[in-house]
Nucleic acid binder design. Structure first.
Lengths: 151, 151
DNA sequence: TGCAAATGGTTTCATATGTAACTATAACGT
DNA sequence: ACGTTATAGTTACATATGAAACCATTTGCA
């Protein structure tokens, strides 16, 4: 009997259960990065994600930020409130549609970005350093597939 | 110039940033599963993880549950309060150490487990169905490496 | 036009989560 | 034995998060 057969109702072995493993890994990695910029800038993960997307796409509305970050609009609204308050994000009203905001990084926001982006990349590099070139390529391909469709 | 060079401070492209991709994938997967058993049993993810580990290891203490699930002791304490209240987990006091509890699934708890464990496995299978055999093998190997050490 | 429905965004409320303080018991060193 | 320190677990408080209600504006259409 070369293989073990687990009946469907057998106790779940969390440490071999893919969703659990993904969750542990993802939380550990994200938390390590977040701790880093939290300490330096009192910036939450959601706030940083908003800044990252505004660094790439100047002039987005809050809804567009929500789409790009896959966050819900309430989370974005709150993050923006804090970022505008901190002076890192500028908010104006859209010409011709007074409902929409027009968002962007301020000078101060850009200088925060210039510190945090490299920090984030460094963490990513450290993680990827555990893999060899071939594994990195497979991982990219596998994540593409797993993320395709639903998201 | 065959390759693009991203200066370290260039805007971060979230959709290519490994920690972000892991987070999106992990949250989507875990949430899909959790929604499922939440609806049927009003069971949170932390509560289910506690039940899963008690299904495998009868008689653990709360601290041991926390170790095995990588949850902190407060989260475990709260999950247990609700699970004992629901009648799915039994709690006794350890002979010879009145601080420790001795935990296990009740009959009702086992029957919940018998429904939820297959649900969880089904979600895992659906996720893995997006990959071929070779990719699944690489994924397992890569996660082993990424999770090794720190966790 | 003008009114119903949709959209962008904020606020409210209820729940979840993390940190630190706390209680009870046990272990350790003298 | 006895006081100090450590451990198991819970409670309290402060903050984070999500769902639904809400306000303002705009769009669609009779």
């Amino acid at each position: 009997m070369p293989e073990e057969h687990h009946p469907d109702h057998a106790p779940l072995e969390l440490e071999h259960f893919l969703p659990y493993r993904l969750s542990i890994l993802s939380n550990a990695v994200s938390q390590a990065i977040a701790d880093d910029y939290q300490r330096r800038f009192d910036l939450s993960m959601t706030e940083w994600r908003v800044m990252a997307v505004l660094a790439r796409f100047e002039g987005l509305s809050a809804r567009e930020v929500a789409e790009r970050t896959l966050m819900d609009k309430v989370a974005v609204s709150r993050a923006l409130a804090k970022l505008v308050e901190s002076g890192w994000v500028t908010r104006a009203t859209h010409d011709g549609d007074k409902r929409r905001s027009v968002l962007g990084l301020s000078e101060a926001g850009w200088s925060v970005h210039e510190v945090v982006a490299p920090m984030a990349r460094t963490h990513e590099r450290e993680l990827l350093a555990k893999l060899d070139e071939e594994e990195r390529a497979w991982l990219a391909r596998i994540l593409d597939k797993l993320l395709s469709g639903s998201f």
